[in-house]
Amino acid sequence: MKVLVAVKRVVDYNVKVRVKPDQSGVDLANVKMSMNPFCEIAVEEAVRLKERGIASEIVAVSVGPAAAQEQLRTALALGADRAILVETDEELGSLAVAKLLKAVVDKEQPQLVITGKQAIDSDNNQTGQMLAALTGYAQGTFASKVEQAGDKLKVTREIDGGLQTLELSLPAIVTTDLRLNEPRYASLPNIMKAKKKPLETVKPADLGVSVASTLKVLKVEAPAERQAGIKVGSVAELVEKLKNEAKVI
């Protein structure tokens, strides 16, 4: 089957972000950017499906600025066959991204779309589900295991109380949880090979998708700072403080 993997360029997960003084957003100038960790897991899963003979072709797609080509090259180095960049400088919401991905799905007709469960910048956790709604496909969100079962897909999901297993008709959308797999590193020869793999660029207008938004960010603030408290010297002192000062036990 053909697999489409969506990846996002985000601020690296180790970076401690700073809010801009004018409260217009988070300062991303000269900050290290990477592939969203959940998207890395999505790419890895697609590559493993190909290694198991289930996937025949892997197409990586990203919606983002020209610089997101770096993340697509990473996906190619990890094992994707070709890549599509839907290039836009606007910061799009999940619905607009889902609509753009729907246009790509219509063109590519994959049997399976894998996305991360959430991007670590917007923390929305929406795009995969929205794409499933727009395409009418079944969804297997927060997946920690994906298996083929005949013409269906068996997906184990992480839910609040534990794990749940669903069977989905294909084509389907799967969003990855952290425990789905351990992503590999791209080797230098594979990075070199990835430079020769095809990377197509399209604009939202080429896809006939309007990215108008009903959501406006009025301001972005730093959260209330939590002050460091005190260090206690012994267990007895800790218990005394919790009982008499904090009154929580």
Partner: peptide, 12 residues
């Protein structure tokens, strides 16, 4: 947003 390192005020 950003793992709780920023709070966004949004209007819909």
């Amino acid at each position: 947003i950003y793992a709780g390192n920023a709070i966004a005020t949004v209007q819909s």
